[in-house]
Amino acid sequence: MIFESFGAFMHMGGHGQFVWCAYGIATLVIAYNVIQPILMRRKVIALNKQRIAREGKL
């Protein structure tokens, strides 16, 4: 660990705000890409149940 203290780690010689902001947005994007499909999956399964109920089982 090249930073002496946690404070220095957060501050990062003045560039901390940019680095953390970038990593924050990255986590948001990754989270979106992971969660959104899973929600979609649940929605599609529910939709399928309806469709099958409506059209009758094959």
Partner: peptide, 24 residues
Amino acid sequence: TVWALGFVPQDYQQGHSVRIMYIH
């Protein structure tokens, strides 16, 4: 991420902002 944030030495020119490279 841990490696890039915590253990990579800072760049002589850009300082710590080079860590953004590891996402960009």
